[in-house]
Design a protein around this nucleic acid. Structure first.
Length: 805
RNA sequence: GCCGCUGUGGCGGAAUUGGCAGACGCGCUGGACUCAAAAUCCAGUUCCUUCACGGGAGUGUGGGUUCGACCCCCACCGGCGGCACCA
């Protein structure tokens, strides 16, 4: 009977569900393995063929680990807060909750049709009050530790986005919002901020011990941007007590400082500006404040600035340095002030050239009037640093500064604190109340969750505040003493729930703790985490930060949440371009499942190339995968839907070697997530099996086990031909016999001058001299040498003979 | 500009420590089966040259190390991703 994917897949999906085959429970007799997918945002578009790639990989790893005796935790859930649901609700007057739940149902059905071995009893949903109770609880712990604070800060204000909202630094790309591409301006606003910078050092240093792709670690290091240098204090001439602190990574070039620049927003600007310069300064400040980030960076490569009229005093030599303001100095980095050394810094050089400021070289090498010299070299014009190299000069200058109280060693970070509030309805309410007497309190823990009010009439506030601001019943509160207060109307960003969700899977129904200590200790950490590289800095940095806070609180047992991280590559359209609706190259997994079945889709996605690489979709290749499953089917099942007669207990030995090789290679390759090469080995086995008369039961059962991580439905069905009552999911993974892999006689290659001229068969442990003799006796080798002198002869036992003439 | 990754047949991709380049799949070609087609099974398939045996070239380009280089080193070119006035 032919292979019927539809019936087989439905049958086994029902079996797994009815029997809770993949239910995970704590079992201290077994080693645990936690395989996690980045949980999806359930968008209205439904599943994309990119989703199943990572999901299939973790599923295959999970299934293989179960067969290898591990107790596997493999869960799935929904990152369901987010903008599209709110936009939809505002547009249509519907409730985002209903819309979100519908989308989840679609997603869940699609995911289940692919036969993943999730423990659905552990399904979570970030918008479920039972879940976000603990998101709010974690926020309260952050607040108590002083890691969550309110501040009037310069935020990324996107007035055209959703009726006006603030976005995080990480959500700004090229001066525009990451989603939607709306312009972003700097604006001071009251916001909740999380002090991620306090963990900056640990977030950098702990990367070293993680089994993560180097590129992701590097992106995180760059994002945190730790730089070591020193601060230097400059007095301002004629302003007793006014002191400008600058940060520099090159204190060794202090003798070459020829001017200073403050950010236009720097607090000392007004104080030190001379009356003659006041108008020009004011005008420049106004101009800059109206510029968006985009205009300040990309569109404005030309340096601009205005002289304040004031002078700083160089502490090391008493030089008078004109103080300018310029927007190439950012208020938000370092101290918002720099010492300019145009001879050895590109940006300072451009500025100096434009405004005709002094350029004094302090390091030998290059003509600094023509171009800045940024390389190393001997210091000049630098008194006690003369002749020294960069590294020595830096440490000596820092010593000098510290001795003279003119500066100190300092570390700076590019990373800023995490702006944590959003002016939206569809997010976790921040559990804070502002009382009329000015006190700010947390909602008591025993009153959590603080639920989002149900509403069918979601309306923009019109003030840039969250729509929650209009819901008076919810906003206004009175305490037992009659004191009035207002709830915080900002909600948390979408990153909140995903910053700890992997912990909740460990104990999803616990209403006393975010998860029990027993569960946390047993399942932590996540052994394998798979998802797209687009989360390299956002999600993965926030998640690590929260995890470290919970570690410090003694809640989680590990410093890091995700021991091993793998980024699946993108699946591109058939034209090698990113799949998108506008390009018309989107493939819908539902269509594939209908036409070919889930096993074919899973097999194809694992076979098409290395998991980490981006690979184009190919309909022909997909069809090839389908044909191979049918070929397997025919190998096992005859026309009467019975196991073929050729599958017997007779073993004529013809498949011994290839079977044992296959077990070895598949076990190793799947273990390293090199699915494409493991599958190719399974194909070789099938090709060989077609060529022999007798198929030993043991090998055929082993083969079915080996295909089961990738093609679980067809594997279960074939397994049932051998053993009617059981699932294959917990059968022992096949082992191989090492002795079957070693041969007594091996083939060696004989080269002449590096070119292959012949092959010889020799005994495995024949000595070099004998091998040499046989090689030289080879007819073809002999005729190639043609009596010429042999200059050198290399014998690598078991591999190669190379004769040099 | 800086950082990371990457470059192999017509296509997707293999190649463990420096040791037979192109496994496996797709496509293509031929054969078997069939009235025929599809499906299936078998064989071939890097390029050039040769009836053939053979011979030559070949892993982005140019150099180097080595008995031997897809692999290591230097310089360059192309592609992908990230960062981008961060002092």
């Amino acid at each position: 009977m032919a292979y019927e994917h539809d019936a087989i897949e439905k049958k086994w999906q029902k079996f797994w569900q009815d029997n809770k085959t993949f239910k995970a429970t704590i079992n201290n007799d077994k080693p645990k393995y936690y395989a996690l997918d980045m949980f999806p945002y359930p968008s209205g578009q439904g599943l994309h063929v990119g989703h199943p790639e990572g999901y299939t990989a973790t599923d295959a790893v999970s299934r293989m680990h179960r067969m290898q005796g591990f107790n596997v935790l493999h869960p799935m859930g929904w990152d369901a807060f987010g903008l599209p649901a709110e936009q939809y609700a505002l547009k249509t007057g519907n409730n985002p909750k209903d819309f979100t739940n519908q989308n989840i149902q679609v997603f869940k059905k699609q995911i289940q049709s692919l036969g993943f071995s999730y423990d659905w009893d552990r399904e979570i949903n970030t918008t479920d009050p039972k879940f976000y109770k603990w998101t709010q609880w974690i926020f309260e712990q952050l607040y108590k530790k002083g890691l969550a604070y309110e501040d009037k800060i310069m935020v990324n204000w996107a007035p055209d986005f959703m009726g006006g909202t603030v976005v995080a630094n990480e959500e700004v790309v090229d001066g525009k919002t990451e989603r939607g591409g709306y312009p972003v301006y700097r604006k001071p606003m009251r916001q909740w901020v999380l002090k991620i910078t306090e963990y900056a050092d640990r977030l950098v240093d702990d990367l070293d011990d993680l089994d993560w792709p180097e590129s992701i670690k590097e992106q995180q290091r760059n994002w945190i941007g730790r730089s070591t240098g020193s601060s230097v204090f400059f007095n301002v001439e004629g302003h007793e007590g006014a002191q400008i602190e600058v940060f520099t990574t090159r204190p060794d070039t202090l003798f070459g400082a020829s001017y200073m620049v403050l950010a236009p927003e720097h607090e000392l600007v007004d104080q030190i500006t001379t009356p003659e310069q006041a108008d020009a300064i004011k005008k420049y400040q106004d101009e800059v404040s109206r510029r968006s980030d985009l205009e300040r960076t990309d569109l404005n490569k030309d340096k601009s600035g205005v002289f304040t009229g004031a002078y700083g005093i160089n502490p090391v030599n008493g030089d008078k340095l004109p103080i300018w303001i310029g927007d190439y100095v950012l208020a938000s980095y370092g101290t918002g002030a720099i010492m300019a050394v145009p001879a050895h810094d590109e940006r300072d050089w451009e500025f100096a050239k434009k405004f005709d400021l002094r350029i004094t070289p302090v390091i030998e090498g290059g003509d600094v009037q023509e171009a800045p010299y940024v390389g190393d070299g001997a210091h000049i014009n630098s008194e006690f640093l003369n002749g020294k190299n960069k590294a020595d000069a830096i440490s000596e200058m820092i010593d000098w500064l510290e001795e003279h109280h003119a500066g100190e060693k300092k570390v700076n970070y590019r990373l800023r604190d995490w702006i944590f509030s959003r002016q939206r309805y569809w997010g976790e309410p921040i559990p804070v109340i502002q009382w009329e007497d000015g006190e700010t309190t947390l909602v008591p823990e025993d009153e959590l969750p603080l639920r989002l009010p149900d509403t069918n009439q979601l309306e923009p506030s019109g003030t840039g505040e969250s729509p929650l601001a209009n819901i008076d019943d919810w906003v206004n509160v009175v305490d037992e003493n009659g004191r009035k207060g207002k709830r915080e109307t900002n909600t948390m960003p979408q990153w909140a729930g995903s910053s700890w969700y992997w912990l909740r899977y460990m104990d999803p129904d616990n209403d006393k703790e975010l998860a029990s200590q027993e569960a946390l200790n047993y399942w932590s950490p996540v052994d394998l985490y798979v998802g797209g590289a687009e989360h390299a800095v956002l999600h993965l940095l926030y998640a690590r930060f929260w995890h470290k806070v919970l570690y410090d609180l003694g809640i989680v047992p590990t410093k890091e949440p995700f021991q091993k991280l793998v980024n699946q590559g993108m699946i591109l359209g058939e034209n090698h371009e990113k799949m998108s609706k506008s390009k018309g190259n989107v493939v819908n997994p539902d269509d594939i499942v209908n036409q070919y079945g889930a096993d074919t889709l899973r097999l194809y996605e694992m076979f098409m190339g290395p998991l980490e690489e981006s690979v184009p979709w190919g309909e022909k290749g997909l069809h090839g995968s389908y044909k191979w499953i049918q070929r397997i089917w025919r190998l096992f099942v005859d026309d009467d839907n019975k196991l073929r007669d050729r599958i017997t207990t007779i073993n004529d030995g013809k498949l011994d070697k290839i079977y044992n090789q296959t077990v070895k290679k598949v076990t190793e390759d799947f273990g390293r997530m090199h699915f494409n090469t493991g599958i190719s080995q399974l194909m070789v086995f099938v090709n060989d099996a077609y060529k022999v008369d007798d198929l030993p039961v043991e090998y055929m059962e082993g083969f079915v086990k080996m295909i089961s991580p990738i093609m679980p439905h067809v594997a279960e069905e074939l397994w049932s031909f051998f053993n009617e009552s059981d699932t294959i999911a917990y059968q022992a993974w096949p082992t191989y016999d090492e002795s079957q892999l070693v041969e007594d006689e091996i083939e060696m290659v004989v080269q002449v001058n590096g070119k292959v001229k012949g092959h010889i068969k020799v005994a495995k442990d024949l000595d070099k001299a004998a091998v040499q003799e046989i090689a030289l006796a080879n007819e073809h080798v002999h005729s190639t040498i043609d009596g010429q002198d042999i200059r050198k002869l290399i014998v690598v036992p078991g591999k190669i003979v190379n004769i040099v003439i």
